[in-house]
């Protein structure tokens, strides 16, 4: 019997796996943003001494994983599993990064929700007793994403007001069984939701209904209220999608005053990114450096992270298909174990 599942789509982590450590490696533009002092490494340019942006992206991911492991005093091959993904075709960044580590690897694609997907699966692996330390990482690079999904980077295209800036950055999280720290209590696996948005420059609007769907399901399944969390944090809706989500939540009578979005925390207002940040790296470089870090000082010490993804493909866009969205939610709680008191 599925004893660890509650409600329609949520699961309970009985052993409460712990986010033992994290690291973020980012590009130069992110390195000028409001979180600049929190990042472990800032690349001096978008090429990172490599001969292509794709290789630079792989290096970012590799370094973030190594640094996260180092903080927990672990060697790369001591991971029981590595879970990772990115935005590029055939998830090449994750695949080629995993080549470096001698760790069992599962490649994931959930667009920008990949980090949440990886964390949920890491939690399941640990809670099921299949491993003790699992790495979850996701990564994006502005230039590799633009040339694959939109236009050549040197083409004189006017970006629309709703467009978001794909983050150049990678975040890695080491999930372990443990007692003290940021621990995963529940997760809600999202459904693919499509509200017919076709504009590839307005992915926030495409993802907002998915975020609503998952947050609502999470609250119903767990019997919690939005106010039980200090923050409910969406992955990368950006300014436009965030406004859409607030409107949608108001219509459903869900309070949204503790709602925030990772895409609003990466860049400063003067960085001309229009609707904020997006990409696999967006939530990955914000969750740890911005939220996990200070969680112990919050009144409720709880947050809900809803990683959002726009399942966009240039191929289906050309065929006139709309952009489906998905969101996966994880509830985190800061707890202090018996032994460490």
């Amino acid at each position: 019997m599925a004893v660890k599942k509650i409600g329609g789509q949520s699961l309970v982590f009985e052993s409460r796996p712990c986010v033992a450590s994290w690291a973020a490696v980012v590009g130069p533009m992110e390195g000028e943003g409001p979180l600049k002092s929190e990042y472990d490494m800032i690349m001096k340019d978008s090429l990172f001494d490599q001969d292509s942006w794709e290789k630079a992206e792989q290096k970012m991911m590799q370094y973030s994983i190594e640094l996260a492991l180092k903080k927990a005093d672990r060697l790369p091959w001591e991971m029981d599993y590595l879970l990772g993904g990115d935005l590029l075709n055939q998830i090449i960044t994750a695949n080629f990064t995993a080549r470096v580590f001698g760790a069992p690897f599962l490649g994931l694609y959930g667009a920008c929700s990949t980090l949440a997907e990886g964390m949920i699966l890491a939690g399941i692996l640990i809670d099921g007793g299949y491993g003790d330390s699992v790495g979850a990482a996701s990564c994006s690079h502005h230039d590799t994403a633009e040339r694959q999904l939109r236009f050549p980077t040197e083409m004189g295209v006017q970006r629309s007001q709703t467009a978001q800036w794909t983050v150049t950055g990678s975040g890695a999280y080491l999930i372990r069984s443990g007692e003290t720290g940021v621990r995963m209590t529940h997760a809600t696996v999202g459904k693919v939701v499509d509200y017919g948005v076709k504009n590839a420059s307005d992915m926030g609007s495409a993802m907002a209904p998915a975020a609503l769907d998952t947050i609502r399901a999470h609250l119903e399944d767990t019997g919690r209220n939005a106010a039980d969390y200090d923050y409910i944090i969406t992955g990368d809706l950006g300014r436009r999608g965030f406004d859409s989500l607030k409107t949608l939540m108001a219509e459903e009578d869900l309070p949204a005053n503790n709602l925030t979005d990772c895409g609003l925390h990466v860049y400063g207002g003067n960085q001309d990114t229009h609707s904020g940040a997006s990409g696999c790296g967006c939530s990955a470089i914000v969750m740890g450096p911005r939220f996990f870090k200070e969680m112990r000082r919050w009144p409720r010490k709880k947050l809900l992270f809803a990683g959002t993804g726009a399942l966009l493909s240039p191929l289906t866009s050309f065929q006139g298909e709309s952009i489906p969205g998905i969101a996966h939610a994880i509830a985190f709680e800061w707890t202090e174990g018996e032994n460490s008191k």
């Binding site: 007001q161 409107t247 609707s275």
Partner: peptide, 25 residues
């Protein structure tokens, strides 16, 4: 059904849409 839901959502979300800076453009 899918199309209708999309149409309703677009109508609703276009109200909160950021304005194109038309004169500047």
């Amino acid at each position: 059904l899918l199309r209708e839901r999309g149409r309703l959502y677009l109508v609703r979300s276009s109200k909160t849409a950021a304005k194109v800076p038309l004169v500047k453009n």
